[in-house]
């Protein structure tokens, strides 16, 4: 049992990190912490993907010493996927931060519940 947990430690850590990030993104009131949660969640996915791309005993996918046997090298695709994913999460984070700044300028708060309250009050005043 312990051996199996040790063998799959990276997957287990990745799932725990993903859950932490997911819960933070879903339930935390503070907008900045939500964004941090989003980044933890994405990073956990990349950890999982990177760990799949590493096979013990194999070489980086660059031909060395004329060895063209594919089984001597790791698959380069997961690294490419991680890079693409990082680009996506950077752009999404930037967009969310921009939105947060806009909200903070108007409501002077980062607490989403408080912002909803203020917005509801404004709506009532308009009526």
């Amino acid at each position: 049992m312990m051996e199996r947990i040790w063998d799959e430690r990276i997957q287990i850590v990745a799932v725990i990190l993903f859950t932490i990030g997911f819960c933070t993104l879903l339930v935390h009131k503070n907008l900045l912490k939500k964004i941090i949660g989003l980044n933890i969640m994405d990073t956990a996915s990349y950890l999982l993907l990177t760990s799949m791309g590493y096979v013990e005993g194999r070489l980086a996918p660059i031909i060395r010493g004329g060895n063209t046997d594919p089984s001597a090298y790791v698959n380069p695709l997961p690294a490419g996927l991680v890079l693409t994913g990082i680009v996506v999460s950077v752009s999404v984070t930037a967009l969310l931060l921009a939105l947060t700044i806009r909200l903070y300028r108007h409501y002077h708060s980062l607490d989403l519940d408080k912002i909803y309250e203020l917005a509801a009050k404004e709506d009532q005043n308009e009526r």
């Binding site: 993903f18 990030g21 997911f22 993104l25 879903l26 907008l31 939500k34 989003l38 969640m41 994405d42 996915s45 999404v92 967009l95 969310l96 939105l99 947060t100 806009r102 909200l103 108007h106 409501y107 989403l112 912002i115 909803y116 917005a119 404004e122 709506d123």
Partner: peptide
Amino acid sequence: IDRTTLASVRYMIFSLIGSG
């Protein structure tokens, strides 16, 4: 307007949970 900013934040959060 402020309502759309708030709506965008909510939309983004749900969308990002979905994509995650």
